[in-house]
Design a protein around this nucleic acid. Sequence first.
DNA 1: AAAACTTACAACCGCCCCTTA
DNA 2: GTAAGGGGCGGTTGTAAGTTT
Length: 339
Amino acid sequence: MGRQPCCDKVGLKQGPWTADEDKKLINFILTNGQCCWRAIPKLAGLLRCGKSCRLRWTNYLRPDLKRGLLSEYEEKMVIDLHAQLGNRWSKIASNLPGRTDNEIKNHWNTHIKKKLKKMGIDPLTHKPLSPLTPPTDHQSPPLLAQPAYEAPQTEKLTLREPIEDQNNETTNETISVQSSTITEVSKDEHEEDEQSKRIVVDFCTDEVPLIEPHEILLRSENMLPPLSSSCSSSSTSSTYDISTNYNINLVHEELHQSLPSADNQWCSSSFNSTNYNNFNGGLWGDDEDDEFISTLNMLINDQYELDTAIYSDTILGTDITECSKMLMCDDDWKLGQQL
DNA sequence: AAAACTTACAACCGCCCCTTA
DNA sequence: GTAAGGGGCGGTTGTAAGTTT
């Protein structure tokens, strides 16, 4: 029979989103909330299909997204969760606040997969690669001679959502998993691994730093920290750079002008005291705002201790709890109504 | 300096599942 | 019970940016 496509695609734009399109989408959702995705493009004045809008929003524009590389901790969580759940990226993502399934999937394919293979572990089965199926370089017997994998330990891992077994029956929230404890080969890596093992053995997802409402900051013009003219905007591989494809901050500024005053504050990414090392300014780009971005980068990478409560109360002068409501209420958060 | 190659990730595609009429 | 609509999900592709030759 076949399904109708989600849209006819005739006259619709595809490819990378422009700042203007982002602005329209953000503006619409902040004003009206998420409703029927199919209707959003028309209502928001976008020549995109609803699906494209939904993906853009959920994977890129959502204010509660963390950006930047996954931390070592998150990476290990992904590995463990993948060992139990397989390629169910959305389930895995639901245990990593601020991360999207797409992001995790990409990270898995580009980083973790290779890492595991390099370590002699099959990323599909999480078991040591069979000597009968040699790695692609055909020259890695040392890895196999000394198996880079320890017998899995049974650990308690609490998922944020119950998982279902093959009979589709919901199991207990706390399930028994086989932790993919991994042993590195080199000495340095071995030391690193000792740490890793501790992390893997010790953590449960309850310990994941969740983004609490009080940890979410709002930003308006007067929230900008003092700029440092000496900061360079360049970033190195060891730092997180707060940059996107274009200057989305300009979008933000325009929104300030176009939205009612009550709407004139909106939430930042997960910029909080426990998590901001991963903060990558989901809604702010780099170009003209280099100074601000580099300042943030400097603060973030210098482990600058920022007490968000103090920051919000004394610097921002904003009632965080009020504003966080609209962020945390997925269904119908409407800035104007809730502020 | 430029071409070739590699990497990372945003975006798309098509299938699946759930809801509704 | 069933067909259609809508959204979610996982796999794949396109391409910009980075690196190597």
